[in-house]
């Protein structure tokens, strides 16, 4: 419904303090939301990483920072190895990756692997976002 609360809670979850006010008002550089709501009102759509089975971003990554975990299927970028070349952003078919210019690395959805339910799903007030396991 276009409230953008998924963005707020994604940013919070990926901040240092994980406190919604501190994450937005105090922490610098600010954390980045990995999910983004696109709008063509009245339509709105949350864009996030699909954790592809054949991840173009992983194939294209020049440094090997982008990896797909064979166990969980989650695609993550190792910020130690990412050099901010944005090749992954160019090849992502969903436009799901974002530049973290403050840190010079790519920011992407990690499905909040440390949580049972990703923050965006847990806080979506209209249950528009759901977590679906499509592991073959």
């Amino acid at each position: 419904m276009g409230c953008h609360l998924c963005e707020v809670h994604c940013l919070t979850e990926h901040s240092q303090s994980r406190h919604v006010v501190r994450a937005h008002k105090r922490e610098r550089p600010r954390a980045l939301a990995r999910v983004r709501v696109e709008e063509a009102l009245p339509l709105t759509l949350a864009i996030q990483c699909h954790q592809c089975d054949e991840p173009m971003c992983v194939f294209a990554c020049l440094t090997g920072a982008m990896q797909k975990d064979p166990e969980t299927g989650i695609v993550t970028s190792d910020s130690e190895r990412c050099m901010g070349c944005w090749t992954c952003i160019m090849v992502c078919p969903f436009g799901a990756l974002r530049r973290d210019t403050a840190r010079g690395v790519v920011a992407k959805c990690d499905l909040c692997a440390h949580l049972v339910t990703p923050a965006c799903v847990a806080h979506c007030p209209n249950e528009a976002l759901t977590l679906v396991d499509v592991t073959p």
Binding site: C3, H4, V8, V21, H24
Partner: peptide, 13 residues
């Protein structure tokens, strides 16, 4: 204002 994070949820809702 101490708590407002300018997320604009209120603006949209």
């Amino acid at each position: 204002q101490e708590r407002c994070i300018q997320c604009r949820v209120c603006v949209r809702q």
